[in-house]
Amino acid sequence: MPKYGMVIDLDKCTSCQACVTACKVENNVQIVSEDDAQNGRAMFWMKMLTMEFDGDYPNIRPKTLPRNCMQCDEPSCIKVCPVRATYLRDDGIVAQIYPQCIGCRYCMANCPYTVKVFNWDRQEQPAEVERTYNPDVSVRPKGIVEKCTFCIHRLQTASEKAKAEHRDLEPGDYVPACVEVCPVDAISFGDLDDRKSEVLKASRDYRAFGLLEELGTVPKVRYLNAKE
């Protein structure tokens, strides 16, 4: 079984937010009204986070950092879900079952990274957006929680394609939208169990660190510090 992981190189990242946009389009994430956005209900699976500190704990220089779901190996979110609407898959992805979620928001309260977003209500989307909905991803109803899934629908398509072609899934077959779109290739993605994979090598780099690693959540999204 592979174990998917991601390494984001903050040295290469220019904070262009292409990943943020790509994610929103790829996953049909709802666009909320201006009022709601102002009230802190904007929905992003991938978010550009401004880290206030500069050059402190372990020498972080960049002030921004793209943050998606950390796909923790010891996720706090699944522990507290009362209905198994979020669970850890064998391939390491923390998935969310939309039709199962009852919207208690306990997982939101317990994610140390404040990653999960809630559909406070369902709003009319701009016509252009509705035209370009991704058919592979369900449009979530109001009242449930959602989050980054490492574009799990792409994994499904890729493995089905591989199966049809009678071969195994190759490393480049499945990449999430943010990885694909990054203009400077700052994000590497792949199988952390594969010894030859680029992502494993990157995650063992001396510059690598995980956000809030000290909590023991074992994030599978790791970052590379900016070089001096």
Binding site: V80, C81, P82, V83, R84, C101, I102, R105, Y106, K142
Partner: peptide, 29 residues
């Protein structure tokens, strides 16, 4: 009150079908 607080009260039966006893919410119930 926790039921009032649910985003999807219509799915409350999921607690009975697929409840996960590790969640403090179920202990609470």
């Amino acid at each position: 009150h926790p039921i009032i607080d649910l985003g999807r009260p219509d799915r409350i039966l999921h607690l009975f079908e697929r409840g996960r006893l590790q969640s403090p919410l179920l202990w609470d119930l």
